[in-house]
């Protein structure tokens, strides 16, 4: 966190591969830059691109840890590039694209398509009772419920949890941590009319919560600190109570 250990010379090893270029093969490329105070990987990578290799591909948008664009493997750990301060890292920084997602090039991967498919599969939207009535006052909801939904809604779909999960890495069908979190988010929303049986079908299988074998990396890695493990426990118990009913 501290921005004070400047004067280091940072060594980057960055994964390079441009699928659009027939001459390109996957390899690691080395760069060296001087560390600056409060330097984030957002700043470092832009400097590398602007001063050393303008062909380097990576994704940033908000640069404030809120849009979820910049997930990448930083020394083996899925992290948000914009949030990662170089002062928290050793001198040698290895960067890889997130696994699981389709590679666009270098550090850039297609998370958007993965998340859209996940949303479609789990029908991640409010299944409303009736059409919106513009003349009516809003339905009430107590603030605790709203807060609970919001806690789950905070996921920024960065894909770090998915990349960190052993199961998601080997099974394309698994909804993944973020997917399970989405299901939980809608299942606890009183505005969603899907009943227990609907949820049971979605949750209770090896693509759902029983795909999770409790590796717990997702929870430890989530940059938004979502309580993912509590979410799975909630889903498991929901599946069990539904079946017992």
């Amino acid at each position: 966190m501290s921005g004070n250990n400047a004067n280091r010379r940072l060594k980057f090893e960055i994964f390079r591969y441009n699928p659009q270029d027939p001459d390109s093969t996957p390899h690691m490329q080395n760069f060296e830059i001087d560390e600056l105070p409060y330097m984030s990987l957002f700043m470092a990578l832009n400097e590398i691109r602007e001063k050393h290799d303008p062909s380097l591909q990576f994704d940033f948008a908000c640069r404030s840890a809120i849009c979820g664009s910049c997930g990448m493997m930083v020394n083996g750990k899925p992290s948000l590039g914009c949030r990662t301060q170089t002062s928290d890292l050793p001198e040698l920084i290895r960067l890889h694209p997130l696994p699981v997602f389709k590679l666009v090039g270098d550090l850039s991967v297609d998370t958007g398509i993965w998340f859209r498919e996940m949303a479609e599969k789990s029908e991640a939207w409010i299944h409303a009772k009736e059409a919106f009535d513009p003349a009516a006052q809003e339905d009430r909801m107590d603030d605790e419920t709203a807060q609970k939904i919001y806690d789950s809604d905070r996921c920024i779909e960065c894909g770090c949890c998915v990349a960190s999960c052993g199961v998601a890495n080997v099974s394309g069908e698994f909804a993944g941590p973020a997917g399970l979190n989405r299901m939980a988010r809608f299942s606890m929303d009183p505005r969603d009319t899907r009943d227990d049986a609907d949820w049971f079908e979605l949750i209770s299988n090896e693509h759902g919560v029983f795909g999770c074998i409790g590796m717990m990396a997702c929870h430890d890695i989530c940059p938004k600190e979502l309580p993912l493990l509590e979410v799975y426990a909630y889903l498991r118990r929901k599946a069990l109570t539904t079946a017992l009913k």
């Binding site: 994704d59 948008a61 908000c62 404030s64 809120i66 849009c67 979820g68 664009s69 998370t111 958007g112 398509i113 998340f115 859209r116 920024i156 779909e157």
Partner: peptide
């Protein structure tokens, strides 16, 4: 330019 949910409205 980005997946819709990454648009700046999210910030």
């Amino acid at each position: 330019l980005v997946p819709p949910r990454r648009s700046h409205s999210c910030a």
